[in-house]
C-alpha cells in the first residue's frame, strides 16, 4: 500500500505546530497503524529528520498508552486502540490525517504525544480503596452478586487512554471518571468510601479544566473498551446522592 500521511508536527509544548505531509510506500495491510508509523520513522531517521513522536507500550490493546486522532476519530475508524488498528481498514492511495488528542487538560508534549497526567491526579483523588482488601483467597470472603461483579468488571476495563476526552466536543473526562467511580462504588469493598470518592473525583476532574458533559455520546462511541454512556448517569446519581443525601 502507498499512503499519504498528514501528521501534526510540533517540536515542543510551546512551539507552534502544523500538519506536515509524508508519503509512505510498501505498507502491508497486516501492519498495525503504529507499525506503519514505525516504517515512516525509520525512513525519517535514515534521512536525518526528526522521527514522529507518539506514545505506545504494550501494543496489545490493554495498556492505554497509545492514542491519536486518525481522520477525525479517536483511535481511527475501528473500535479499538491505535496499536490494534490494522492497515487493512484503509485503502491503497488513501490520505490519512493524524493528530494528537485535543483538550486543554491534555497539553501537547511533542507531535502526537500529550500529557495525560491529569487522569492520574483524578485517580489519585479517590480512584482506589484505602483499606487493604486482602489477597486473592480473601476475595471469596466477601460474596459479590454476579450482576454487581459484571458491572464492576465492565467499568474496570477502562485503560485510561483518553479517547473519551479526545472525542468529546467539550474535552470532558466524565466517561473516564464515571468508569472508575462505578467500578469501585458498586463493590462492597468500595462502599465505605462511596460518597467521598465521587465527590473528590468530580472535584479533581473539574479542577483539571475538563469540560462538562452535554450528553453528545461521542465518548462512548470512541471508547475502545466499550464503557457505556449510561455510566455517566450512574456517576451523576452517585454524585447527587453523596451531595444531597
Amino acid at each position: 500500500m502507498n499512503l499519504t500521511l498528514r501528521i501534526w508536527r510540533q517540536a515542543g509544548p510551546d512551539a507552534p505546530g502544523s500538519m506536515t505531509t509524508y508519503q509512505v510506500s510498501g505498507i502491508s495491510p497486516d501492519m498495525s497503524f503504529l507499525e506503519m508509523l514505525d516504517t515512516l520513522n525509520e525512513e525519517l531517521i535514515t534521512r536525518g529528520d526528526q522521527p514522529v513522536a507518539f506514545d505506545h507500550d504494550c501494543r496489545e490493546g490493554i495498556c492505554g498508552a497509545c492514542g491519536m486522532v486518525i481522520n477525525g476519530r479517536a483511535h481511527g475508524p475501528e473500535r479499538t486502540t491505535t496499536c490494534q488498528l490494522h492497515m487493512r481498514h484503509f485503502k491503497d492511495g488513501d490520505t490519512i490525517d493524524v493528530e494528537p488528542w485535543r483538550a486543554a487538560a491534555f497539553p501537547v508534549v511533542k507531535d502526537l504525544v500529550v500529557d495525560r497526567s491529569a487522569f492520574d491526579r483524578i485517580i489519585g483523588s479517590g480512584g482506589y480503596i484505602t483499606a487493604p482488601t486482602g489477597s486473592a483467597p480473601d476475595a471469596h470472603a466477601t460474596p459479590v452478586p454476579k450482576d454487581t461483579a459484571d458491572t464492576a468488571f465492565e467499568h474496570a476495563e477502562c485503560i485510561g487512554c483518553g479517547a473519551c476526552v479526545a472525542a468529546c466536543p467539550n474535552g470532558s473526562a466524565m466517561l473516564f471518571t464515571s468508569a472508575k467511580v462505578v467500578h469501585l462504588n458498586v463493590l462492597p469493598q468500595g462502599a465505605p468510601e462511596r460518597s467521598s470518592r465521587v465527590r473528590n473525583m468530580v472535584a479533581a476532574m473539574d479542577a483539571e479544566g475538563f469540560g462538562g458533559c452535554t450528553n453528545t455520546g461521542e465518548c462512548a462511541t470512541a471508547c475502545p473498551k466499550g464503557i457505556p454512556l449510561p455510566s455517566i448517569a450512574a456517576m451523576n446519581r452517585e454524585y447527587l446522592r453523596a451531595s444531597l443525601g
Partner: peptide, 10 residues
C-alpha cells in the same frame, strides 16, 4: 466547555 477544547481538529 469551549475553554476545555481550545484547539479544533484539522
Amino acid at each position: 466547555d469551549l475553554a476545555a477544547r481550545p484547539s479544533k481538529y484539522v
